[in-house]
């Protein structure tokens, strides 16, 4: 086990260690994060990173392979562009968590703020609480599970990402519609909830996705150009 105390050590020292293979397979404790930015950004190897406290912007960005747990809240841009591995936040996450992320699993046990999963490209996101407005905007692929409610304009201009929502959306964004929950979706959702360690009955969720009406140019709109 390696410990990094961010009260004394630069965040850069931690991140450089996570960029190299020396700590692969090890457990890493990060104490006194104090809301600092970029904590555990760019990790590349299979490590378990436990961050004891709240973090600022861009925590766990670009993560590959590492399992990172924030035992606190996270600021804006959590797990932005994650490629693989997992990121878990025990508290709440601020805006645009999981933005543009290609893979891996992001778990927010509390609430996530606005623009959660914006432009997600294959990541799976499970939020134990509610999410803010404009979430899953232009979401391309991957799954977004919300156990609470969603703010305004959920899934605006969504492509092929799937949204599972247990509560209610304040409103749906353009081209986002409710879709039937087939057996395949119940199974997929059950698996995601299991992985996240969050207990809910998948039957309580509704599925939302793209109506695919924005995929092709509508000649009726020619006047707008």
């Amino acid at each position: 086990m390696r410990e990094f105390d961010l009260q004394n050590a630069e965040v850069r020292l931690l991140n450089q260690a996570l960029h190299g293979s020396d700590l692969a397979g090890q457990s890493i404790e990060v104490v006194n994060p104090g809301g600092k930015h970029n904590v555990a950004a760019g990790a590349q190897f299979e490590t378990q990173v436990d961050i004891r406290g709240h973090v600022g912007y861009y925590c766990a960005g670009m993560n590959q392979n590492a399992r990172i747990t924030v035992h606190g809240n996270a600021g804006p841009g959590l797990a932005e562009n994650m490629m693989s591995g997992s990121v878990t936040v025990k508290g709440n996450a601020s805006q645009y968590c999981g933005a543009t992320a290609h893979g891996g699993l992001l778990i927010v046990e509390g609430d996530a703020a606005a623009r959660c999963g914006i432009s997600m490209k294959g990541v799976d996101i499970v939020v134990g609480g509610s999410i803010g407005h404009m979430s899953a905007f232009m979401a391309q692929s991957g799954r977004l599970v919300i156990c609470g409610d969603a703010g305004e304009s959920l899934g605006d201009s969504i492509y092929e990402a799937r949204i599972y929502l247990r509560g209610e959306p304040t409103s749906l964004g353009t081209d986002c519609i409710e879709k039937p929950m087939e057996t395949e979706h119940i199974e997929e959702l059950k698996d995601l909830l299991n992985k996240a360690g969050i207990k809910h009955d998948p039957a309580e969720f509704k599925r939302y996705g793209s109506a695919r009406k924005l995929y092709n140019f509508q000649v009726d709109n020619v006047g707008a150009y």
Partner: peptide, 22 residues
């Protein structure tokens, strides 16, 4: 603007912390 500033305050580790709604 950021939690970093609040972390300086006495007993901030036990504060109720939230992001204000729009």
């Amino acid at each position: 603007s950021e939690y970093r500033a609040i972390a300086q305050l006495p007993n901030s580790e036990n504060a109720r912390i939230w992001e204000p709604d729009p």
